[in-house]
């Protein structure tokens, strides 16, 4: 957890800066609005964390979010009665896509970068093949309530964070980190590496399903809803000090990374640096953050306290 301290300091600094620039942020409604905006990315970051800490990537979550929203709109088509069955179906789709990603990566030994890149192409191709090129149908009010009402979004976020923390404290979490840190050693000590990795991919798929449900309510139906979310999620996780390649990092820090990214966007917007230069600033900050994290690594490796 030591590695994660800087991200919380940065996050605190950003939140203070936002509050100074815009006092409305401190009022319950203002802060709730912020949480509502963060929730989808934070949940995606938690899902991506499991995959990254096990030593893999999941590039398919952006397309998967789009698929979830488009499928929901087409199947619900404004019919309230369809809300719950479709919600259940979306969760199943997310888990299933994660299962396939995980099995292809572990059993067929395709690098996860390629597996999930393929999944990204297949998912976005398939869903628009099905709807004829553009999203169709509409979401029901019952569906949209999750992303639209701040209370629901925050509640779902809390459940997701709690579940993620509990999972990482359980045997699963320890074996997952062991698998990401040193696969061979983990295998030799009896960890079922393939199984925990497949499970990590399923959690990532599940997180994309939940994020899709929230974004559908929050942002509505569009073909771009999930665009570049995979890179944002990976960025958030890495900002949280989680090492690409696996084995190091804490899930709460990864989620804090998502908060930091969103707080950064909010602050840039407040200062009128919107759209264009926002990307440039984001790029510089990501590199700087990871460089700062990387430069400390040799010192950590020398210290005897680290196992």
């Amino acid at each position: 957890m030591k590695r994660a301290i800087p991200i919380f300091l940065v996050l605190a600094g950003l939140l203070v800066a936002i509050a100074v620039a815009n006092p409305y942020f401190l009022e319950p409604a203002g802060f709730l609005g912020f949480l509502k905006r963060v929730a989808p990315l934070a949940i995606l970051a938690a899902g991506q964390y499991f995959v990254i800490v096990s030593g893999e990537f999941d590039l398919s979550v952006g397309s998967l979010v789009t698929v979830e929203v488009v499928v929901a709109a087409r199947l619900i088509d404004g019919d309230e009665a369809m809300t719950w069955p479709v919600l259940a179906l979306l969760i199943v789709i997310g888990l299933l896509v994660g299962l396939v990603n995980g099995l292809v990566t572990t059993k067929l030994r395709v690098p996860s970068f390629i597996t999930t890149l393929g999944a990204m192409l297949i998912l976005s191709g398939a869903v628009f093949l099905w709807t004829g090129g553009a999203p169709r149908g509409a979401l029901s009010q019952g569906f949209r309530v999750f992303g639209r009402e701040g209370v629901w979004a925050v509640l779902i976020l809390l459940v997701a964070v709690t579940a993620a923390v509990l999972l990482m404290r359980a045997d699963f979490g320890r074996t997952l980190i062991a698998a990401g840190d040193n696969e061979r050693a983990a295998r030799l000590s009896g960890v079922r590496v393939d199984r925990v990795r497949v499970f990590a991919f399923m959690l990532s798929g599940l997180s994309a399903a939940v994020a899709g449900i929230l974004l559908g309510g929050f942002a509505g139906v569009s073909a771009q809803v999930g665009q570049s979310l995979e890179f944002q999620a990976i960025t958030a996780v890495v900002l949280g000090g989680v090492v690409l390649g696996g084995g190091r990092g804490h899930v709460v820090a990864a989620i804090a990374g998502a908060f930091t990214l969103e707080a950064l966007f909010t602050l840039l917007n407040l200062h009128g640096i919107s759209g264009a230069l926002e990307y440039a600033v984001q790029g510089v900050i990501i590199i700087a953050a990871v460089a700062a994290g990387g430069l400390r690594l040799p010192a950590l490796r020398l210290s005897p306290s680290k196992v």
Partner: peptide, 21 residues
């Protein structure tokens, strides 16, 4: 700077994107 290539080139891509936009 010992930044993972994925993040380094993604960051540079974002910087170029910002400049372009």
């Amino acid at each position: 700077l010992k930044v993972h290539a994925f993040i380094a080139t993604l960051g540079v891509a974002l910087v170029i994107r910002g400049v372009l936009d």
